[in-house]
Design a binder for these strands. Structure first.
Length: 117
DNA sequence: TGTGTGACGGGCG
DNA sequence: TCGCCCGCCACAC
């Protein structure tokens, strides 16, 4: 039986790791793609995190709406079934959103590298 | 097999 | 301050 290549194995783990980290984001908090990428040791590859989040649609229990870009902007809302649902979900958890942007992002920011020791 | 694309981030003029 | 360009790497065609 063929053994999976290290590269393929790592790719799978990367996606899984992204989901795992996103699931650990506390309610009422948000994080950025770059922070997740840095935590996974893929610093500079924040795009891969976004790619993984697109695939996260197939999974359930992935609060992808808690992930925004470094400016606290809901750039990925268009990828949800209900683009407006992303903002509504955040506001329901106490995260104020104005103009597709998280209010007081600096305080709401949750850094896995620091909080998730 | 090669090329284009993207839910990003940092740097430069 | 604003806008543009480059690097990053997995995936689709």
């Amino acid at each position: 039986m063929p053994l999976p290549s290290d590269a393929a194995q790592r790719r799978t783990n990367f996606f899984q790791d992204v989901y795992d980290v996103v699931k650990l984001i506390p309610p009422g908090r948000v994080t950025s793609y770059g922070a997740i990428a840095a935590y996974l040791g893929a610093k500079g590859s924040a795009r891969m995190v976004g790619w993984a989040l697109i695939a996260s649609h197939a999974q359930h229990g992935i609060p992808a709406y808690r992930v925004v870009n470094r400016n606290g902007m809901l750039t990925g809302k268009q990828h949800f079934d209900n683009p407006n649902g992303m903002q509504e979900s955040l506001e329901k958890e106490g995260v104020q959103v104005k103009d597709d942007q998280v209010v007081d992002f600096a305080t709401r920011f949750w850094d896995p590298a620091k909080e998730l020791l």
